[in-house]
Simulated assay, not measured.
Amino acid sequence: MTRETGWREWLDDLAERFDRYTLGDLPPEDRQDTWEGATAHPVTHAMDRTTAGDAWYEHCRQVLTWLLTRGDVAPSRAEELVAEAVGGRFESRMKPEQTAVRHVAERLAASLEPTTA
Results as ranks from 00 to 15, higher is better:
R3G: 06
E4I: 08
G6V: 06
G6M: 11
E9A: 09
D12P: 00
D12F: 02
L14E: 08
E16I: 00
E16K: 03
R17Q: 10
F18G: 01
F18C: 00
D19G: 12
Y21I: 00
D25A: 14
L26N: 05
L26R: 09
P27A: 10
P28Y: 01
P28C: 00
E29C: 03
R31N: 02
R31D: 07
D33A: 15
T34W: 07
T34F: 04
G37Y: 03
A38R: 10
A38G: 05
A38M: 08
M47W: 09
T50H: 13
T51P: 00
T51S: 13
A55F: 15
W56N: 07
E58A: 08
H59Q: 12
C60K: 04
Q62P: 00
V63G: 01
V63P: 07
V63L: 06
L64P: 02
L67V: 05
T69E: 12
S76E: 15
R77K: 14
R77P: 02
R77G: 03
A78V: 09
E79A: 15
E80G: 05
E80M: 14
L81D: 12
V82M: 10
V86A: 06
V86T: 06
G87F: 08
G87I: 08
G88L: 08
G88D: 11
R89Q: 09
E91S: 15
E91H: 14
R93Y: 12
K95L: 11
K95I: 11
P96W: 03
Q98T: 13
T99M: 01
T99H: 00
A100Y: 02
A100W: 07
R102A: 13
H103P: 01
R107Y: 04
L112K: 00
E113K: 02
P114A: 11
